[in-house]
């Protein structure tokens, strides 16, 4: 059914701007993806150090997401449900890691982990090292990824009417029981989305990691190193693989969450 014969100029403006935005994002990525030959891609993947760094990237990001999930879920629930003095302040603290330039994050965490600081001293005694370790990488990735998990999960909790929880309590369920039987089943999709966002943010981190741990080498650091040492031709295949693998992982998570939805 056609109602409008001639579209408003504003309509064409929206179409134009949308194509500019989409093109701006896609063009460089597509260009980079199609540049390396299959031979290059194959050889790159056979390189053990590449495989190791991509795997390191994936599992440190996964760990960061897991930590964010564990500590961020109760925190997000608290923010979604309770009003308390200084709540705005706490909410803006959560957003800080998004705003701070990435190298500063690395420097800040290193400053805390140094032996001159009591916390760094304590960690040293227990045997926790930040500088140049997987622990350090995970710490940095959690720092930059947390806001994405907390904010997404919080939005999910906020979307659930508090009345459902009230009814559950009045029927005899404790706060924990209510969370497990009402809140979680209704919010898990947002929580999963939060995990995906957090992971995505972590896997793309470079600036903070390169300061805390140049080695062991995560994929973005390796891409950077190859770029500065050998030029784009050697860095592109690694980048393509990292992108493809991340894409597949996120797609799988999405599909998993959607197919579950259709079952119920």
């Amino acid at each position: 059914m056609k109602i409008e014969k001639s579209k408003d100029p504003f309509f064409w403006l929206t179409v134009f701007c949308s194509s500019v935005v989409v093109g701006f994002i896609l063009l460089p990525l597509v260009q980079m993806t199609v540049q390396p030959s299959f031979q290059d891609l194959k050889e790159t993947l056979q390189d053990q150090s590449v495989r190791r760094s991509i795997w390191l990237s994936i599992y440190t990001s996964g760990l960061a997401a897991l930590i964010s999930f564990t500590f961020g879920t109760p925190f997000a629930y608290l923010l979604a449900r309770k009003d308390f003095p200084g709540k705005r302040f706490v909410e803006s603290i959560i957003d800080l890691p998004i705003m701070i330039p990435h190298p500063i994050v690395g420097i800040a965490i290193l400053g805390l982990a140094g032996k001159n600081h009591w916390l760094g001293h304590l960690m040293h005694q227990v045997g926790i090292q930040i500088m140049g370790t997987v622990t350090g990488i995970v710490a940095v990735l959690t720092f930059v990824g947390l806001p994405f998990y907390v904010n997404t999960a919080k939005a999910g909790f906020e979307a659930i009417p508090v009345r459902l929880e009230n009814v559950s309590r009045s029927l005899g369920a404790s706060l924990t029981g209510t969370f497990l039987r009402v809140t979680f089943p209704l919010a898990w999709r947002s929580m999963l989305l939060g995990i995906i966002m957090c992971c995505a943010r972590a896997i793309s981190e470079f600036g903070a990691v390169v300061i805390v741990a140049y080695h062991p080498m995560i994929a973005p650091v390796m891409i950077y190193e190859r770029f500065t040492a050998y030029g784009p031709k050697y860095s592109q295949p690694v980048a393509v693989w990292l992108m493809l693998i991340s894409l597949v992982l996120f797609l799988l998570l999405r599909i998993f969450s959607v197919s579950k939805e259709n079952q119920t």
Partner: peptide
């Protein structure tokens, strides 16, 4: 706490 009161509630939107 609400779960120990033995009081049920029916909301307008049923919840």
């Amino acid at each position: 706490s609400p779960e120990k009161r033995g009081i049920s509630i029916v909301y307008q939107d049923c919840a």
